[in-house]
Amino acid sequence: MSTTEVTKKSQSNPVQYVTPPAEISEDDKAIQIAVDMPGVGSNGANVELNDSTLSLEGAVESTHGRRPRHYRRRFTLTDTALFDLDSIQAKMSHGVLEVEIPKASKPAPRQIKIATS
């Protein structure tokens, strides 16, 4: 019924993603990704980590007759153990999505006691 119609409509009009320009930099503590998403506010941005794929998306609602737009960039973290994935931070700043992926801190060396028999 109406659900079927909606499904059909979404199949015939799949979301067209725009690939926005990105910049990747790195310092001692983290990797930073900045992606231009003009028109996207913090409510329209979405950052998702699925296994090793980091997906950065942004949606611009149709305003003032401008067409709605969907931005998407996806990156793969080849070695997830190198990063502190629980501490990924993201923010929107004047239409730029800024994501910071902290590097995993190296565990402190542990002294292992040698038992005497």
């Binding site: 320009p21 990105a22 910049e23 990747i24 930099s25 790195e26 310092d27 001692d28 930073q32 900045a34």
Partner: peptide, 14 residues
């Protein structure tokens, strides 16, 4: 807006 001790890997932004 980059800090001095960061290394730029890829830039497509102008």
């Amino acid at each position: 807006q980059r800090n001095d001790n960061s290394k730029l890997h890829r830039s497509e932004r102008v």
